[in-house]
Amino acid sequence: MSWLSSLASPRALSKKGILGMNERNIAYISRYNPRRLYPLVDDKLQTKEIAVESGVTVPELIGVIRHQHEIKHLKQLLADQTGFCIKPAQGSGGKGILVITGRNEQRFIKSSGVEVDVSSLERHVSNILAGLFSLGGKNDVAVIESLVHFDPVFSDFSFEGVPDTRVIVFKGFPVMAMMRLPTSASEGKANLHQGAVGVGIDICSGSALKAVQFDRPINKHPDTGKDLFNLQIPQWDRLLELSASCYEMSGLGYLGTDMVLDKHLGPMLLELNARPGLSIQVANGMGLLPRLKQIERLGKKGPTRASDRIAYVKEHFCVPSSVQNKPA
């Protein structure tokens, strides 16, 4: 049977330490992420507040619109702004995020290049408030924050949109990282299932290990043609430090942190995710389980300070450069 050969054997997957969705849900998310802490990450406004409190860099907040009647102040609020994005505080999966990259007098230029007027923005905000993008359709608030001036080092690695770095932080240890590069297929979004490129990142050095698009290995960015294996994330240590400190900040044991690199401010936290996906394993070409289990085995004896945890990770989870499968 031919379709059988397109399936991996469960034993082979388990031998590679691949974490499956069911095991993630039972053994990690429900065990390490207390339900009561979810609002901290599901509500981007709350995330921002706790991040500011604990000194984690985040994009600057321009304003919050909480009620329909406040929408008429939108024009005034955005009067001096050229680049900003409007997002639902409780949106999921990148839904409802509107990115404005510039102005053409009274009109706003979306990241796709389309110009819209202010009434279109008002409608978007109204949809956000009505709960169109939030889980279960409950009422939401719209958060407007200034656009990240993303570091030009990545400009050749990305098509429109902002590339971001996803780090899985387990009990405060950054265990695996991946960079997500928007492509024309993903329409400028950094979502892997829509066609963004996922680049596995060596947790020690911040350099590329492997790249995939639609779960299949690739070497070059499909739009820019740039060799993906030359990717090196600058200020990697600072980024790891920020990610690791999100554990103390949120209290969540199994956490996905989405980081971006700002030209002026360096790495900053975009959002937290209490249910991070599993594609990071495909991008890295390795399973999460061995690292998660190693950290579970540490128990209470493991290092507690963020810097010690990073040191531990760098000592144990490095991929030797000989193994880094750079193409000839």
């Binding site: 054997s9 469960p10 082979a12 499956g20 095991e23 995939v212 779960d215 299949r216």
Partner: peptide
């Protein structure tokens, strides 16, 4: 049940092939 889902066997197939 913490085992793999059938569709995950397909999704993670490239990992094993490598």
């Amino acid at each position: 049940y913490t085992g793999y889902r059938l569709l995950e066997l397909k999704r993670f197939k490239p990992l094993v092939d490598e």
